[in-house]
């Protein structure tokens, strides 16, 4: 049987247009919400269009019209059946003080694994440089790290002028973007079932360990701490968080001890991973500023003790922030009492 298409179009088109207009409104403005009456009308139009589609698919093979109705229903379906929390207004304070630190703690095992991998790399880098001092060029293939630490310290301490004069902002921007790119790559390498992430963490650890051993072996421990601690106390945790995000992604792909389908697992970790990436970006912006405006200044320009105190204080604050912020104190007290 063939449907009287012109009449069908004539009678039904106004409803489809009305539905399309409502959808356009919802889609154009992400903060838009419908009142109860509008919601009822929206749902009514949706069910009517569903019925039109089923009528059309039984009685006629009007392909283009069917596609149009299918696209309308597909758009409505997303709006009506979405049960995940749709946050239209983003509160930065709420996210910074609660969401990010809580997410970090919830996924702490991946962070610990990330730390272990980098530490293993650092130990290997330090031991390798200690045992094979001539292999420095292979272990740290960066020209600025190949200079003897004593020579560098002597050169820096002789310099009485501002070493970063007129280049702080550019250097800072370069550091921020470079480190963020490295972090994104570390996270994205989680797609290789975590192998890429682990390799990157290990490699960064090797370089870090070798640099530390180079300076310590040359008797420049104080300079090293004063140089690395102010920005490293934020930058290194940020890279570790990138590793944490990558390992979460890898964990969802591997699905150890989790029988849910892989698509569900990936869907579940999405918001945690993006929260961690947002947090580490903030940390890297801060680290970039500190590295450019503080870390590159040495004695006599800036006393080492001051830089070390700053770095230590910053590290303690970061640890306190990540481990304490967003904790529900009432719940903690109750659980303590119960235990």
């Amino acid at each position: 049987m063939i449907l009287n298409l012109p009449r069908f179009l004539e009678t039904r088109r106004p409803q489809w247009l009305e539905l399309e207009a409502m959808l356009n409104r919802l889609e154009r403005d992400i903060t838009c919400s419908l009142d109860l009456q509008e919601l009822r009308r929206f749902h009514n139009l949706y069910t009517q269009t569903c019925s039109d589609l089923s009528q059309l698919s039984v009685f006629s093979s009007e392909i283009e019209l069917r596609q149009h109705l299918e696209s309308l229903i597909a758009r409505c379906y997303g709006e009506i059946h979405e049960t995940r929390r749709h946050q239209t207004r983003f509160s930065f304070v709420e996210w910074f003080l609660r969401t990010f630190p809580r997410t970090f703690r919830r996924q702490a095992p991946c962070f610990l694994l990330s730390c272990a991998m980098m530490l293993t790399g650092a130990c290997l880098g330090a031991v390798s440089l200690r045992l094979l001092p001539n292999a420095k060029e292979i272990i740290m293939p960066f020209p600025h790290l190949l200079v003897s630490p004593s020579d560098r310290v002597a050169h820096e301490e002789k310099n009485l002028k501002d070493p970063m004069q007129g280049s702080q902002a550019g250097f800072s921007a370069m550091l921020m973007t470079h480190n963020t790119r490295v972090s994104i790559l570390t996270f994205a390498s989680g797609l290789t079932y975590g192998v890429g992430t682990l390799i990157l963490l290990f490699y960064n650890g090797v370089i870090l360990g070798a640099v530390c051993m180079d300076y310590i072996g040359d008797g420049q421990s104080r300079f090293l701490i004063a140089w690395l601690l102010p920005h490293g106390s934020v930058e290194i945790p940020a890279i570790l968080i990138a590793g944490q995000a990558g390992l979460i992604l890898a964990g969802a792909l591997v699905g150890w001890g989790d029988n849910t389908p892989i698509r569900h697992r990936l869907r579940r970790i999405g918001s945690d991973v993006i929260t961690l990436l947002g947090g580490l970006t903030l940390l890297l912006i801060w680290a970039g500023l500190i590295e450019s405006f503080l870390s590159q200044y040495h004695e006599p320009y800036l006393p080492y003790s001051m830089k070390i105190i700053f770095g230590l204080t910053q590290l303690m604050l970061l640890l306190a922030y990540l481990s304490l912020c967003g904790r529900d104190l009432k719940k903690t007290k109750v659980s303590r009492r119960n235990s």
Partner: peptide, 12 residues
């Protein structure tokens, strides 16, 4: 799954 696209999906 035909549901609304979320910001974390877009970012990821």
């Amino acid at each position: 799954q035909g549901l609304a696209l979320s910001l974390h999906q877009i970012t990821m």
